[in-house]
Structure formats: structure tokens, C-alpha cells
């Protein structure tokens, strides 16, 4: 990385040592293809300490909550063997509590990685970096798509890896209470994949919000509003409309997608998948459209 030997101190002369071009026409040489822009965005992503802090925090929170949840679930199931009320509650939840333990920190992972999505674009505008970015890629959309790929893939991988890590930590704790967690079971795999896709989707929504709002605090608060405030507010407002509308909030799509069987008064899995997809596609397309049109 560091320059090893001092090269014969270049002077301004080096600026144009290669060619002498005059007149019109565009110059030869590689331009910004999607893969190059993706590489550039990945360099930008990994050279910020804040990115690494957010990714690290996600892992810590996921693993920490997995361990706590394993302990709490164990305590609860022990109580259930003695307390008929607790047993009834346990039965009402479909029996297998252990399978949800590795993803119990997901609400926080989505907030952290969703914020990462916001920051990835809003910081471009708050720092002025956007002028450099879009001067190098004046078509703009490749840079947006590259950021989308970077944040979606990273969020998926980090969520999946930390879910696995949480699972490995939770398995022996649950075992102490006689509960079995099989990480290779189809339901465990489904939980891992659906939740990782979900968090990746939240990160994509975050990126879209950051692009639309161009302000870090505003973008993160919109995200919090959509994922934390709206579900509660919809529950408090009386009326059938809000009961119905609540089902279509992005945060309420995970339960139907991971349910063993369809639970009455919730969306079917395929409906939930479409709703979550729409929550990603609409803001992302709107953000892309406006990014292309607006002044930087």
C-alpha cells in the first residue's frame, strides 16, 4: 500500500507525459463500466471506519441477542413444564421456540443496516463527495446501482453470518434446557434466508431514502418511522382500515414469510413476498429516477 521507493519526484510535467491531444473527440481509454464503478463503490465502502463500525455492531447485536434469547427461551420452557398457563402459551406459538432464537436480534440488525444504506448515499451529499462521484460517473445510475449491490450483498452476508454465529452460540445454551436447535433443519435454513433477504431489503429501502432525502438524520428518521413508529401507530389508531393496512407494512412481512402454516388474518407467504418486493422496488425506482434528474 505505502509507496515503497521514492520515484524520481514527478513534476507537473508528468501530467501530460503520455499523450498530446488536441482538438475534438473523446479520448481513448477505459471508462466507467458497471464493474469498475462497483469496484470503486466497494473501495469507498470499506475505507470508511463508520461502515466497519456499523457492520461490527450488527454482528455483536445479533450474536448477543441470540445468546440472551436462548437463555430466556430456556427459562420459559422450563417454567412451562410446571405452569399450565405457560404451557398453553407455548402451545399457542406452534411448539418450536428454539428455531426463532438465532434471528431474535433482527429488529436491531435491520435498523443498523438500514441506516448504513441511508448513510451510504446521504453522506455523499452532506460531505460534497457526490460532486466527485458523479463527475466521474456522469450517467449517475451506474453509481447508484453499484451502491445498491454493495449494500444489499453486504447486508445479506452480514445478517446470514451473524445469524449462524448466533445459532452456534445458542445451540448449547438451549441444550442445557433440553431444547433442540437444529441449524440444518429446513425451518432454520428458511429463517436464515428470509431474514437475511429481509435485512438486505431494508438496506435497499434505506439507500433509496438516503438518495431521496439526501440528509442523514432525515433518512434515518424516515426509516425508523416506517419500521418502528408506523406499526405501533397503526395499532393504536382505531378503525378497520389501519388493522388492514398494518399487514402491508414492510416490517410485517417477515412473519408470514417464515410461518410454518398460514396464520389467519395475516398475508399469505406469496402476498408478503410481493409486498416486501414492492416496498423495495418502488422507492428504489423513484430514487433512481430523481437522482438522474436532480442537480447534484
Amino acid at each position: 500500500m505505502s509507496s515503497t521507493t521514492v520515484e524520481s519526484t514527478p513534476s507537473p510535467r508528468d501530467a501530460g507525459s503520455r499523450t498530446r491531444r488536441t482538438g475534438s473527440g473523446t479520448s481513448a481509454g477505459p471508462g466507467p463500466t458497471f464493474l469498475r464503478v462497483l469496484n470503486s463503490e466497494f473501495i469507498k465502502f470499506r475505507t470508511l471506519l463508520s461502515t466497519l463500525i456499523l457492520l461490527g455492531s450488527t454482528v455483536i447485536v445479533m450474536v448477543g441477542f441470540g445468546a440472551l434469547s436462548a437463555w430466556g427461551t430456556g427459562q420459559f420452557s422450563q417454567a412451562a413444564t410446571r405452569d399450565p398457563q405457560a404451557a398453553a402459551r407455548l402451545a399457542a406459538q406452534g411448539g418450536d421456540l428454539a428455531v426463532g432464537v438465532p434471528t431474535s436480534g433482527i429488529a436491531f440488525a435491520q435498523l443498523i443496516l438500514g441506516s448504513l444504506g441511508v448513510l451510504l448515499m446521504s453522506s455523499e451529499f452532506t460531505t460534497g463527495m457526490a460532486r466527485s462521484t458523479f463527475a466521474a460517473v456522469p450517467k449517475r445510475l451506474p453509481a447508484f446501482a453499484a451502491k445498491l449491490v454493495v449494500v444489499v450483498v453486504t447486508s445479506f452476508v452480514v445478517t446470514a453470518v451473524s445469524t449462524l454465529a448466533a445459532g452456534f452460540l445458542a445451540t448449547p445454551i438451549l441444550g442445557n434446557y433440553g431444547l433442540n436447535l437444529d441449524l440444518a433443519s429446513s425451518q432454520s435454513v428458511k429463517m436464515l434466508i428470509v431474514n437475511s433477504i429481509y435485512v438486505a431489503a431494508v438496506a435497499a429501502i434505506g439507500l433509496a431514502l438516503g438518495t431521496l432525502i439526501r440528509n442523514s438524520a432525515g433518512g434515518i428518521m424516515s426509516l425508523v418511522g416506517l419500521f418502528f413508529v408506523a406499526p405501533i401507530a397503526f395499532q393504536l389508531i382505531p378503525g378497520d382500515f389501519f388493522v388492514e393496512a398494518r399487514k402491508y407494512l414492510p416490517g410485517n412481512t417477515v412473519a408470514p414469510l417464515t410461518a410454518l402454516d398460514h396464520v389467519p388474518a395475516t398475508l399469505e407467504a406469496w402476498q408478503a413476498g410481493l409486498v416486501l418486493g414492492a416496498w423495495v422496488v418502488v422507492p428504489v425506482l423513484l430514487a433512481a429516477f430523481l437522482l438522474k434528474r436532480r442537480d447534484v
Binding site: T26, S27, A28, G29, P30, G31, P32, K44, L48, S123, E124, T127, G128, M129, A130, R131, S132, A135, A136, V137, P138
Partner: peptide
């Protein structure tokens, strides 16, 4: 290849 055609210093603060 915009960067190879035009280089610009628009604002010293156009950096993260």
C-alpha cells in the same frame, strides 16, 4: 470515459 476527457476541481470539499 469522462475522467479521461475532463478533470475538474469544483470544490475543495468534494471529498468524504
Amino acid at each position: 470515459a469522462p475522467l479521461r476527457d475532463v478533470g475538474a476541481l469544483l470544490d475543495a470539499k468534494a471529498v468524504h
